[in-house]
Write a protein that binds this DNA or RNA. Sequence first.
DNA 1: CTCTGTGCAAAGCGTTTGCAAACGA
DNA 2: TCGTTTGCAAACGCTTTGCACAGAG
Lengths: 133, 133
Amino acid sequence: MSNYTEKLRKHNLKVTPQRLAICEALHVNGHLSIDDLYNVMLKKFSSLSLATIYKNVNLMVKSSFIKEIKIPNAKSIYELIKDSHAHLVCEKCGSVEDIDINIDFVISDVLKNQNFKVNNIDLVLSGICKKCQ
Amino acid sequence: MSNYTEKLRKHNLKVTPQRLAICEALHVNGHLSIDDLYNVMLKKFSSLSLATIYKNVNLMVKSSFIKEIKIPNAKSIYELIKDSHAHLVCEKCGSVEDIDINIDFVISDVLKNQNFKVNNIDLVLSGICKKCQ
DNA sequence: CTCTGTGCAAAGCGTTTGCAAACGA
DNA sequence: TCGTTTGCAAACGCTTTGCACAGAG
């Protein structure tokens, strides 16, 4: 149970029960779609509004507190910002797994001549996971 | 001017003027959003319907004839399927540039133990382009 | 106390669908 | 000719907005 109260404040976000719950849900589940997030939080806040999820998620993305991962042929998922990593998406069962893979050196190497300042790397690998093969 | 009539047939897609125009537009421009595509093609087909674009683009994606590239904080773009490459997206001007960068070896290396069969690699680098710096 | 966040309902907007006419093979 | 595609309009579904009330600081 990390101290998300502090973390929210550091990002200039007011602390509300709903926002803390978003943090907890993402902390526990790793990454969730908007709907997943809504359904998880509904257990705690019976009168929760989808609009609240959208407003907060958008705000938290803008504040670089969470990040949106766009997935081919599927809904986006959101996760707390952490070290750079790639996502393995199974085309069969839809599962998404994080993997630690560092391609920074490849990229910096290639971009040395390009003069492009990289702020963010999105790497999504689609295929068939171990279980589905 | 490649022979897209043949290529469409190979993918079991009937050849229509609209479909050929999509091919040409993507061939010439590299990658376009749905709206871009619509506006480009409108010059040729004054009574073109957006629905036609959507229907064809969806069909061509399913047939692995073109590919959707999802971009952070922006509309998706579509391109003819070609050799694996990454995309450089400028967060300032929105330009998208292809770069030849092969990370297959890194990935196969990491995935050797994971037992994940990779079918597709999406690599999008966001940042600031040469012109905008 | 003031300003921001929440929930609700309505509005907005990109995308999909159904249908009749046109077209490709 | 027969099945597919096109264009149009309506429907759909996800996301955003406006507003009154509740809650954070």
